[in-house]
């Protein structure tokens, strides 16, 4: 077990380093220097800036320096906001995004899973058809469209919640629902189909043949088995929530990391793009690691299994 964790941690670090290097060189491949977009700066000032950010060093030295700093957790200064570092930006933005993301994932789990079970138990009934239709809509509507539509209806039309901003409970409702929409629909569909599959298994018949009540059959015998596929998709799902927050934060004017990221892309703020990209990958790699651990905990076969060869 310990060996497994150690190996995974090492490979996680490796992945993040690969992402960091690839992104670093990609940014340097851009034809215009980082300051070219600003209105024609005098050559003097550009030179000063380049010196300040060590852009006049040879490329390999810049790279080695960057990786060195990265390993110490320092993502460097922002090119755009002269007085802030990328670490500052992440410190400011991430807690907001994390709070919003956590609410969305929670909503997805709390609503999506029961909805899927409910639909499966009423397979082909009208409740099932309705839930599945709505879920299919849910996975189809792009998040920025959902955001705009929700804002149109509930904020600008019905005036029940504020259209934008951050800080109050009411302000979190629309963005959270927007972000949770896709995962809810996705989980409901996944849980329904795995539930139907599990209910066809022989061990469920065995449980029924023992005289167990239907609720015991579902909650004791089926639930843990359907959680296994659910856990495997949680990693990608969390990724979807975070990347979804790029536009949602922009539309609802939420001061989260996603909004900074989009802004930094439009400003070509290279160090911020680079730093936040690395941060996101590290976060997701870590989430996937947690998911794997949960998976092993849920499925006893993973813990000991020998691969069978006939």
């Amino acid at each position: 077990m310990l060996k497994f964790i150690l190996r995974r941690v090492l490979s996680m670090i490796l992945v993040v380093l690969i992402v960091a290097s690839a992104t670093f060189f990609m940014m340097r491949l851009l034809p215009s220097g980082p300051f070219a977009r600003e209105k024609k700066l005098p050559a003097e000032i550009i030179k000063n800036l380049e010196e300040r950010y060590h852009l006049d060093d040879p490329l390999w030295k810049q790279y080695v320096d960057y990786i060195k700093n990265l390993l110490q957790g320092d993502l460097g200064p922002s090119f755009k906001y002269r007085n802030r570092t990328v670490n500052n930006i992440i410190n400011d933005g991430f807690p907001v995004s994390a709070a919003l993301g956590a609410v969305a994932v929670l909503l997805a789990v709390v609503i999506g899973i029961p909805l899927g079970i409910w639909a499966a138990l009423r397979q082909n009934g009208w409740q099932d058809n309705l839930v599945m239709f709505v879920a299919l809509l849910g996975v189809s509507v792009p998040n920025f469209i959902m955001a705009v539509l929700l804002m149109l209806i509930f904020a600008l039309g019905l005036h029940v919640v504020p259209a934008a901003g951050w800080g109050t409970f009411k302000q979190i409702i629309l963005p959270a629902i927007t972000l949770a929409g896709y995962p809810i629909a996705f989980l409901a569909r996944l849980v329904r189909s795995s539930m139907l599959e599990v209910l066809r298994q022989e061990y469920i018949t065995t449980a029924r043949a023992k005289g167990l009540s239907e609720s015991l059959v579902i909650f004791r015998h089926a639930l843990r088995n359907i959680l296994i596929p659910v856990v495997t998709v949680l990693g990608p799902l969390i990724a979807a929530v975070f990347t979804g927050s790029f536009v949602v934060e922009k539309i609802f004017a939420i001061p989260g990391l996603g909004r900074y990221y989009v802004t930094s892309i439009n400003d070509r703020d290279y160090t911020t793009i680079l730093g936040v990209t690395i941060f996101y990958s590290a976060l997701l790699v870590f989430m996937n690691f947690l998911v794997d651990l949960t998976y092993a905990w849920l499925d006893p076969r993973i813990r000991y299994v020998e691969r069978k060869v006939s």
Partner: peptide, 11 residues
């Protein structure tokens, strides 16, 4: 797979 696809596309 470890990197969100959207980020790769953006970059």
């Amino acid at each position: 797979y470890g990197i969100p696809t959207l980020i790769i596309v953006i970059l």
